[in-house]
Amino acid sequence: MNNKLKVLRAERNWSQAELADRLKVSRQTVNAIETGKYDPSLPLAFAIAATFGLTIEDIFLPD
């Protein structure tokens, strides 16, 4: 699954650690999602979408 997490984070000038704090997950989790090594659970995907004020479909794209 592809995602726009890195772009959205860069637009807001947030570091991975800052986003991780907002999502209450580890920085490694944010890194793994950004690099496509890990697909988040549905609750975490909703939390990510809420953090950016977008929908899940706006952030995550099928391969």
Partner: peptide, 9 residues
């Protein structure tokens, strides 16, 4: 407490 879903996976 220090583990999130990615760490568990």
């Amino acid at each position: 407490a220090a583990m999130d879903e990615f760490m568990i996976a």
